[in-house]
Simulated assay, not measured.
Amino acid sequence: MEIVPLGPGFAAELRGVRLADVAADDAVYAVVRAAFEEHSVLVFRDQEVTDEIQLAFSRRFGPPEVTKVGSQGTGSHFVTLSTIGPDGKVVPADHRLSLRSKANQLWHTDSSFKRVPALTSILSARIIPARGGETEYVSTRLAFERLDAPMRDKLESSFAWHDYAHSRSQIAAGLATPEERAALPPQCWRMVWKNPVNGRSAIYLASHAYAVEGMEAAAGKKLIEELMEAATAPGTSYLHPWRRGDVVMWDNRATMHRGRPWPAHEARLMVRTTISATEVDGVETMRLPSSQAAE
């Protein structure tokens, strides 16, 4: 197996390995898991991907999420990210599927709005547009390390509130349905997630974050915006140009990502599996000690 660095201080391509190898071989999995902890974003090119192979690979890293209400794939372990309607045609720009794709163009980390956040997401390319539709990543671990010491100390004892409806409202009012709002109440997480394997810390934020526990609303919003801006500064990202057969996995504890636009008339079909974080992944250290909501 060859590990080829890709991004500015994070992200790597793993060559000479198949998803099925990782699923079946403990030694191969151990190498890939170590690379995941080190590089945060891993790229696997030219994979023969089926739902069964992707799920077997995903289970190696922990328990797969059950897809939430309101998503394509609800009740399964797969999230279907598609702008193809039931008739096989690309839906119009104002269709809910298109608006949800647009919401994914906000910087975010997956599942920070859930009762159990995500360790990793695994995304496979099934149908891709001729141009555009890349996924862009930044390392919130490196962003944390760029902060001055007083700010790092402050964030390590701070908590932020995350809400799915908040991020969706930035695209269109009512994009989050009443059923989604009921199933996904706001969650509060520590603003720094320390990796239990290597001890490195990362800012834990997303477009879902809307308030800082214990801070006045405007001040908390300002802090979140400043941290998001610093984490996504020019020159700090890795932009992944998709090819059919690509699989990319990323550490939701240590990165943010966003989709990039593509021509509205072109189809795009991606399939994502998401692995829940466990106590082994440090999730217990992230929980707010009290259950009081931010004002």
Rank of each mutant, 00 (worst) to 15 (best):
4 V>Q: 07
5 P>K: 12
7 G>A: 03
8 P>F: 00
9 G>Y: 13
9 G>E: 04
13 E>W: 04
17 V>S: 10
23 A>M: 10
24 A>T: 02
28 V>A: 04
30 A>C: 02
30 A>E: 05
34 A>M: 00
37 E>P: 01
37 E>R: 06
39 H>W: 15
44 F>D: 07
47 Q>M: 03
49 V>M: 01
56 A>W: 04
63 P>T: 10
63 P>Q: 09
66 V>W: 04
67 T>S: 14
69 V>K: 14
71 S>Y: 14
73 G>D: 07
75 G>H: 08
76 S>I: 09
76 S>K: 08
79 V>L: 07
81 L>A: 09
82 S>V: 12
87 D>M: 10
89 K>G: 14
89 K>D: 08
90 V>N: 11
97 L>H: 08
99 L>F: 09
99 L>N: 06
101 S>M: 15
106 L>G: 10
111 S>I: 04
117 P>H: 02
119 L>K: 15
119 L>Q: 14
121 S>G: 11
121 S>Q: 06
121 S>H: 13
123 L>R: 11
124 S>R: 13
129 P>E: 01
130 A>D: 10
136 E>G: 03
144 F>N: 13
146 R>N: 06
147 L>M: 14
150 P>H: 11
154 K>Y: 07
155 L>F: 12
157 S>K: 15
158 S>G: 07
160 A>F: 11
163 D>H: 09
167 S>A: 14
167 S>Q: 10
168 R>W: 15
169 S>P: 07
172 A>D: 10
174 G>F: 08
179 E>R: 15
180 E>Y: 08
180 E>I: 11
182 A>N: 05
195 N>L: 13
198 N>C: 08
201 S>C: 09
204 Y>P: 00
205 L>Y: 14
206 A>I: 01
208 H>M: 15
214 G>E: 03
215 M>F: 14
215 M>V: 04
219 A>I: 12
220 G>A: 08
220 G>P: 12
224 I>L: 15
233 A>I: 04
236 T>Y: 05
236 T>G: 01
239 L>T: 08
241 P>Y: 01
248 V>M: 11
250 W>E: 01
254 A>Y: 14
258 R>L: 00
262 W>D: 02
262 W>K: 10
263 P>N: 07
264 A>M: 10
266 E>N: 00
266 E>W: 06
268 R>T: 00
268 R>H: 07
271 V>S: 03
272 R>A: 07
276 S>P: 01
277 A>Q: 03
279 E>Y: 04
280 V>I: 06
282 G>D: 03
288 L>Q: 09
292 Q>K: 13
294 A>D: 02
